[in-house]
Design a protein around this nucleic acid. Structure first.
Lengths: 197, 197
DNA sequence: GTCTATATTACGATAGAC
DNA sequence: GTCTATCGTAATATAGAC
């Protein structure tokens, strides 16, 4: 089906190169010249595949958002006790962050200067609200501590989760450190750092 | 001492305007034209106060770094049990993030395209290492849970702390929500989200 | 599908008057 | 200390050959 090695670009393969450069230099700090050097083709050749720089951004953040919203449709996010749904969404968000690392990284750094960026920010907020609602339900069940504000806790929890993109790098061999990271996030989030649980 | 109202700019007052714009549009997404509009003076007038855009960035991240490294010199960070020093540094880092919000926000978003940015990244790494060493000491004291990797836990803890800059906004009246945020961060970090502690 | 060449605009920074 | 005018460069994007 897929050819073993491809010498020419498609919008897809070009995207993976572009996203990597965007994450290294920042989207605004990346020129079409930078992209052409990284891809090994001329600037004008890039315009053969995509209409411009912003289309690359749109494709990238779309992929990230699809991954995140997909989590909310999974069975584990829609049945069972609310606290278990929260744990499921937390685990799966960490997993999606690692699996789609460059795309989610770009999404989380979007500022809002263009129409595409503002659309991405809006969809992100939507995801955050869906998650916040889950935590509210868990609080109503009495499964979350009552001495913290739930909205605040949601932000801190997903702040911790999202910080993954700042330091996580997949192991060269593709070895299984993914499970370790997922477990650690869940343990810290739900039971904390201190001993004695 | 300080004049009640000042009609002209100093490097200091110009900085606070610039940092705000940098945080809204991103450093690379901000042109001198943007800055001049926001400050209400012409582009060339800005060059009377600072040598260029990068000096504004350097002043801003310096201020943030001074605040953070200042924490490590405080008595609470250098005496007592390691776990208590960790808690002190955590509390104070949250406080500094809130007090110097725009400056720390800018610091945490630096990518590394210029010499100034790379210097900022290096100093940030230095701070992170100092904190990681504190957690290592707390682990050696047996005060941290043993089923998580300490380096990983450090990153997640400060990922949670640093995520503050993405959503925290000071209350208009200057009301005291600061203590609530500090307490919540410490509770979640050390004892977790779940009930039953 | 890729290239060279170029149009056009925006950017950072400077010159020099007031 | 602020301004208008402008320089030189680098940006996005297009034209048109191969």
């Amino acid at each position: 089906m897929t050819t073993a090695r491809r010498d020419t670009y498609t919008p897809e393969t070009l995207l993976s190169v572009a996203v990597q450069v965007f994450n290294e230099r920042g989207y605004d700090g990346t020129s079409m010249e930078h992209l052409s050097k990284a891809a090994g083709i001329s600037k004008s050749s890039i315009y053969h595949h995509v209409t411009g720089k912003e289309e690359l951004l749109r494709r990238a953040v779309s992929r990230a958002l699809d991954g995140l919203f997909g989590i909310l449709d999974e069975p584990g996010a829609n049945r069972g006790r609310a606290i278990e749904r929260v744990e499921h969404v937390t685990r799966r968000t960490v997993a999606v962050l690692m699996d789609e690392l460059p795309y989610v990284t770009l999404l989380l750094r979007v500022r809002g200067n263009t129409r595409t960026e503002r659309w991405a920010l809006e969809r992100r907020r939507e995801f955050d609200h869906r998650v916040a609602d889950l935590l509210k339900a868990a609080a109503a069940d009495g499964d979350l501590r009552t001495d913290v504000d739930i909205r605040l806790a949601t932000r801190l929890l997903f702040g911790m989760v999202n910080s993954l993109v700042e330091w996580y790098r997949p192991l060269p061999g593709g070895a299984g450190d993914r499970e370790q990271v997922v477990d650690t996030v869940v343990r810290l989030a739900f039971d904390g750092l201190r001993t004695g649980h």
